[in-house]
């Protein structure tokens, strides 16, 4: 896991972030990368299920759900709400 506590799992609902680094050892994470969750992608927490797990993210115009344990493998840097969305 990566040092600075900002992972996908720490985003608030409606908050956006850019994926900075990924720990790709888990094959599940590699699968998510194949689906488009790679460094540089802009991603927003859309919702979470009861208890906060799994979480739903909006990314490149699609919605994808991840469990917290996978979300922890993605380090993000938050984007200010005023910045217009790139969409991918």
């Amino acid at each position: 896991m990566h040092g600075n506590g900002n992972t996908l799992a720490s985003l608030k609902r409606g908050q956006r972030g850019i994926i900075e680094a990924i720990d790709a050892t888990d094959p599940q994470v590699q699968r998510l990368m194949t689906l488009g969750l790679v460094e540089g992608a802009e991603i927003e927490l859309a919702s979470s299920a009861l208890g906060g797990d799994p979480m739903e993210f909006r990314v490149f115009g699609r919605c994808i759900s991840l469990r917290v344990e996978q979300a922890l493998q993605f380090t993000v840097s938050p984007v200010a709400a005023s910045t217009p969305s790139r969409g991918y």
């Binding site: 790709a24 590699q30 699968r31 990368m33 194949t34 790679v38 460094e39 540089g40 992608a41 991918y88």
Partner: peptide
């Protein structure tokens, strides 16, 4: 040492962007 699937995703999505 990079997992090949991860590398493929990184390279190809760079092109896609």
């Amino acid at each position: 040492r990079e997992p090949p699937l991860a590398k493929e995703a990184r390279v190809r999505y760079r092109w896609v962007r």
